[in-house]
Design a protein around this nucleic acid. Structure first.
Lengths: 276, 276
DNA sequence: GTGCTAATTCTCACATGCTGAGAATTAGGC
DNA sequence: GCCTAATTCTCAGCATGTGAGAATTAGCAC
């Protein structure tokens, strides 16, 4: 799904999974990850080649995805991601307790800001950080790169680093194994011990402030959000579109984002619908 | 996906599809439609019972969906729809040319309105109408029932009726077959000829105005949006939260929504990315 | 309309791999 | 660190997914 070139989820069992071929349903679902912003339209033929299946099977896959609404036939030979996805995301939003809690807090936080900024709610997803919700005091456009569903780099930017700092040890090990190069480039190397030390350092500050690490000229001020059992759930961050005026301004925003994160945490507790 | 109780897509071949059982991938995808706003959390066991498969297979289905990111394990026994859906919807939005064109038009249209209102962009989807985008001049909350991904009834409300009016004959026949009761209740019966006459009547007006058909006290003013080959693509509508002041106000809004729809249509033409 | 070509479905035989039942194992909670 | 429920594993049997190619359909040009 992450379009990372077909690399399997590294948090899955690493021992035997490599051997066994993909199940049929996995291959069908895999078709969805062919679709990207750069290449939003696919034909069954081209997909069949990419998935290493016959043309007939390519059509079979597309047909079952179309039947599920996950794909939509634009016209002869041209398919795009389908409306079922839109409907599903609505359900995801409706079922997300953190989003529900965070939204009003984010709106309130934004209203207190005088400078052009965006407030971001993000979470960890597959060795990256995904934007869940954005509030902005501009006409939307200038910060559109942070909209819901966008992925951000794991090791750069306050939004990500504040999550990274608190990820469970297993995940940290996996990240080191899979992204050593990137970690070193971000100044958290060169060894695993250095990386862990960098994370400890991040944990010492309640809020992370980073400038121009993702987008030039932008400053992120981020606080982690924890769930009831103390695990990191995501992050809340203020993204300033232009460099902050002075130290005092940064201090003020630091306080504000931290307070907002704590407020979101306070709202949790009531368990969502019970599963049977 | 529409949660319509497992009813199959009626636009599919109706002759032989009934006989053959579901393919494996179809069943896996079918699991996703168990999740709803009312019941957002499922266990593999309960899903296995609902899908008429063994417990082991229930776990297998959940595992492949989790591997694809379509489901996420909250904790032991509790699964929710996963972040891959969020990521996919981002791609859907990025690939939607109508949305891209409509958004600025909708913002501009909204700014011209003095009264509390929402502007809706909608489309046909599986015998219903789905909201694709919403712009509102209130604090979001009071019109939240129209947010992206929401389904609206096919035969009530201006937003839907203006689409219904131009659906292809095949679809109309299917709708009559599957929703006769509802159509009659909406005053478009009692016979198929009456239904077709009602649609003709709708087509005679460029804009449809309906009051309190979906939500009490609300008025919808909607215009159809057509694609380059003249097929109905969706609808643009103004939803007034309180009854309009007078006839003149309605006439003004009618003009405005129609002009906006034409503006969106004018923007199309440039073909999206070519498929291979 | 008529014909052309490419897209799409169909047929069928084969073997892959999905399935259910139950045993074995793992993991949370007290 | 126990205990019970959750989850995975094993395995045999057969349903069904698969590829190759033929048959059909649908869009498009003239």
């Amino acid at each position: 799904m992450t379009n990372d070139g077909g690399k399997r989820d590294p948090s899955a069992k690493r021992d035997k999974s490599a051997k066994r071929g993909l199940t049929s349903a996995e291959k069908v679902l895999g078709v969805l990850s062919l679709f990207s912003t750069e290449r939003p339209v696919w034909s069954p033929e081209r997909a069949a080649v990419r998935m290493r299946v016959s043309l007939a099977t390519g059509y079979r896959y597309f047909n079952t995805l179309v039947a599920a609404g996950m794909l939509e036939k634009l016209n002869r030979n041209r398919y795009v991601l389908g409306p079922a996805i839109v409907e599903l995301d609505r359900k995801v939003r409706a079922a997300d307790p953190v989003l529900k809690l965070a939204q009003p807090v984010m709106e309130r936080l934004l209203r207190r800001l005088r400078e052009p900024a965006a407030i971001l709610l993000c979470r960890y997803y597959r060795q990256k950080v995904m934007c869940i919700h954005q509030e902005t005091n501009r006409g939307g456009e200038p910060v559109s790169s942070y909209e819901r569903g966008t992925l951000r780099p794991m090791f750069r930017g306050a939004t990500s680093k504040v999550i990274l700092a608190y990820l469970p040890p297993r995940t940290i090990v996996d990240l080191w194994r899979d992204h050593r190069r990137e970690i070193v480039a971000a100044g958290m190397g060169p060894g695993f011990e250095d990386f862990k030390a960098a994370l400890r350092a991040l944990r010492r500050e309640p809020v992370n402030v980073s400038s121009s690490e993702v987008d030039a000229g932008r400053t992120g001020i981020a606080a982690a959000i924890f769930d009831a059992s103390g695990r990191v759930n995501g992050s809340l961050s203020i993204v300033l579109l232009s460099p902050p005026a002075n130290k005092r301004a940064v201090a003020r925003l630091t306080m504000a984002v931290q307070a907002a994160a704590r407020e979101i945490e306070r709202g949790r507790g009531m368990a969502p619908t019970k599963a049977g």
